[in-house]
C-alpha cells in the first residue's frame, strides 16, 4: 500500500489519514440489467498494475479523491478530486 498520498488540496499526506473505499467504477444506468448491477456491486477485477480507487481524506480535507495506484509497485500515478473526475467523464 502506498504510504504517502499527494492530496490535491492538502499536499503529501500519510495513508493513515485516508479511508479506502475501493475501485472507482463507472456506475451503470438505473435501468441496466440485473447482471450489470451484480457485476458493478460485487465483482472485482483485482488487476496487476494501474487502477483507479476511491479514497476519502477522512482526517484531512474530507474530500473524496480518485487515486490511480499501481498494485504491483505501490506507486501513485495521479490523484484528483472525485468531483473533477465526473466533469472529465462528461
Amino acid at each position: 500500500m502506498a504510504s504517502l498520498v499527494p492530496c490535491p488540496h492538502c499536499g503529501q499526506r500519510p495513508k493513515e489519514e485516508f479511508t479506502v473505499k475501493g475501485a472507482a467504477l463507472a456506475r451503470p444506468t438505473a435501468d441496466a440489467s440485473p447482471e450489470t448491477w451484480f457485476d458493478y456491486v460485487y465483482l472485482r477485477d483485482n488487476p496487476r498494475g494501474l487502477y483507479d480507487e476511491y479514497w476519502h481524506h477522512t482526517s484531512g480535507c474530507r474530500r473524496w479523491l480518485v487515486v490511480t495506484r499501481d498494485t504491483a509497485t505501490h506507486e501513485i500515478e495521479g490523484v484528483r478530486d472525485a468531483s473533477a473526475k465526473k466533469e472529465a467523464a462528461e
Binding site: 492538502c10 499536499g11 499526506r13 500519510p14 493513515e16 489519514e17 482526517s59 484531512g60 480535507c61 474530507r62
Partner: peptide, 10 residues
Amino acid sequence: ATMTLIGHIG
C-alpha cells in the same frame, strides 16, 4: 491552514 492528524487526534 490545514486539517491533519497530530498523533491520532484530528
